[in-house]
C-alpha cells in the first residue's frame, strides 16, 4: 500500500514539475518576444538584433509592412539595415492568441500583436510566427514572419 502511495506521489510530482517547467519556458519566451516588439518603438534596430535575435545562416525575417512591399532579410540583410528607431514610441502593444510548441531548446510560437496609438483612430494588427532557440539559457529569435494590417476602431 505504502509503495503504491509513494509511486502515485512521485508520478504527481513529476507531472507538476514538467508542467511548471513548461510554464516557466513559456513565460521566458513571452518576455523575449514582447520585449522585442516593444524595442522597435524605443531602440535602434541593430540593438534589437543584438539583444533578441540569434543571427546565423538560417536567420530569416519576412516582414509585410502596412501598405508596402514585403521585406525578406537574412542575417546580412538585417545587419545592413539603417540603425534607426523603426517604430513610434507612442505605440501601445497588446498580445493575444499566443500559442507555444516547445521541444527541448527549440520553440515555435504564433501570436497576434495589436499596436495602437491613442492619438490615432486606427490600430495595427500584426500576425507573427517565430522560431526561437535557447542559447546559454536565453531564448533568442532565429526566424520570424510578421504581417501587418489595419483595424478601424
Amino acid at each position: 500500500m505504502m509503495k503504491k502511495i509513494f509511486i502515485c506521489c512521485c508520478f504527481t510530482f513529476c507531472l507538476a514539475a514538467l508542467s511548471f517547467g513548461q510554464k516557466a519556458e513559456e513565460d521566458a519566451i513571452r518576455a523575449i518576444i514582447d520585449a522585442e516588439n516593444l524595442a522597435y518603438t524605443t531602440k535602434p534596430v541593430q540593438e534589437v538584433w543584438s539583444n533578441y535575435w540569434l543571427l546565423d545562416d538560417h536567420t530569416r525575417l519576412f516582414l509585410q509592412p502596412l501598405n508596402q512591399q514585403a521585406v525578406n532579410k537574412d542575417k546580412k540583410g538585417l545587419l545592413a539595415m539603417s540603425n534607426e528607431v523603426a517604430g513610434d514610441k507612442r505605440a501601445q502593444i497588446q498580445t493575444s492568441n499566443i500559442k507555444y510548441s516547445i521541444t527541448g531548446n527549440v520553440a515555435i510560437v504564433t501570436a497576434d500583436y495589436t499596436l495602437s496609438i491613442p492619438e490615432e483612430k486606427q490600430s495595427l494588427v500584426s500576425a507573427h510566427l517565430y522560431l526561437l532557440k535557447k542559447v546559454d539559457g536565453k531564448w533568442l529569435i532565429n526566424c520570424a514572419t510578421k504581417m501587418q494590417s489595419i483595424v478601424n476602431q
Binding site: Q64, S101, D112, A127, S149
Partner: peptide
C-alpha cells in the same frame, strides 16, 4: 490540431488568420 495556424497575406493587403 489546436495549434494549426495559417497566416495568409493576400495581394489586396488583407491578412487572414
Amino acid at each position: 490540431d489546436d495549434k494549426t495556424t495559417l497566416f495568409l497575406h493576400t495581394p489586396d493587403g488583407a491578412t487572414n488568420i
